[in-house]
């Protein structure tokens, strides 16, 4: 028996897909540990919708704290609330799990410290061995895998987005929801959120099912035009290699790799990217990799499922035209 709490990461009331992936992983883990209750922790303002949705993704119960002090994510009130709920709980969870998003890492990272343990961060697999939970954590940018175990209770774990399958939602599923009150008052929170600069209308790299990336081969800022066009047709996010970012052709937020973002899309199209080991670190877990490069010897072809040796300025527009036709766009 193991009871598991799952931190649901949301932004402006909408849960991130990685939250449901974590919920799916928690259900599976609870099953392997002999059953138990999986409870979604839903904190924020106007989050009733996210809480209802948690049941459709498999939560057995929900603890909801809907409060103005939680409208914007701030780590201290969120972490303090996890700790307060833990201390007050009649039946304490064995595992507290959540997505390794920026907010999930911080909230559970701090909660773990306050609960006298340490988070096991950014797991890509969770298993039970001899009754103990083991987390697989990529280290050295994925060049090594470490197995983590925690002797503490609760065990606090964050899971890498897109490393776990999202469960199929069951329409109409419901369950008991308990309301909680915040741990801190506004006067006790010294960080104030002033606003956001949101990248409107763009597919976020972290969540993207498809990513089209450009590297040194695009040759300049304008060279990203065919990359963006194909991305638009495919509903994909745009990515870039470090070489393109360092050259100033595209902002850092687009960088995939060891010193950029780690992504695991279903499809990764690498255009004009040679595939240096640092770039591979950020995208090698993509399910299908398509490489387009002039150099047939480029290391990217060793990772790729489909390889195209050629000029990306000819190949990308041809791909764009073909997919427009096939997808009826």
């Amino acid at each position: 028996m193991a009871n598991i709490w799952v931190y649901i990461d949301q932004f402006k009331g909408a849960a991130l897909a990685a939250s449901w992936e974590a919920l799916g992983a928690a259900k599976k883990l609870a099953g392997e540990l002999g059953g138990g209750t999986v409870t979604a922790l839903v904190f924020g303002q106007s989050v009733a919708g996210a809480a209802a949705e948690a049941f459709t993704y498999g939560a057995d119960a929900a603890t909801v704290c809907d409060d103005a002090t939680l409208a914007d994510f701030r780590v201290r009130p969120y972490a303090a609330l996890v700790v307060k709920l833990y201390r007050e709980a009649a039946v304490k969870p064995d595992v507290i799990l959540g997505p390794a998003t920026a907010r999930g890492r911080d909230a559970l990272g701090m909660a773990a410290v306050l609960l006298k343990t340490s988070a096991m961060a950014d797991g890509t697999a969770v298993a039970v061995k001899d009754g103990a939970v083991q987390v697989t954590h990529p280290a050295y940018a994925g060049r090594l895998l470490s197995t983590l175990e925690s002797k503490a209770k609760p065990q606090v774990i964050t899971l890498r987005p897109r490393a776990f399958a999202r469960p199929e939602p069951v329409a109409g599923a419901s369950g008991p929801a308990a309301n909680a009150t915040p741990a801190l008052t506004e006067d006790e929170i010294h960080t104030k959120v002033i606003g956001y600069a949101i990248d409107e209308g763009k597919v976020s790299l972290a969540d993207a099912k498809i990513i089209v990336s450009g590297g040194r081969g695009v040759g300049g800022p304008d060279g990203f035009a065919p990359v963006r066009e194909l991305a638009q047709t495919l509903g994909a996010a745009v990515g870039a290699s470090r070489a393109a970012v360092d050259a100033g052709w595209i902002p850092y937020a687009f960088q995939v790799g060891q010193t950029g973002r780690t992504v695991s899309p279903d499809l990764y199209v690498a255009a004009g990217i040679s595939g240096a080991i640092q770039h591979q670190a950020g995208m090698r877990t993509a399910k299908t990799i398509v490489a387009i490069n002039k150099d047939a010897e480029a290391p990217i072809f060793k990772l790729a499922r489909y390889g195209i040796v050629g000029d990306l300025f000819k190949i990308l527009p041809a791909l764009n035209a073909e997919f427009k036709k096939r997808l009826g766009k």
Binding site: L144, S146, L148, S150, R284, F301, R305, G307
Partner: peptide, 19 residues
């Protein structure tokens, strides 16, 4: 509280490219 009883290289990706 956290230990790492094992650390190992991931299984090598088999080259599986179709040109």
């Amino acid at each position: 509280t956290v230990k790492w009883p094992a650390i190992y290289p991931p299984p090598a990706l088999e080259a599986n490219v179709e040109m």
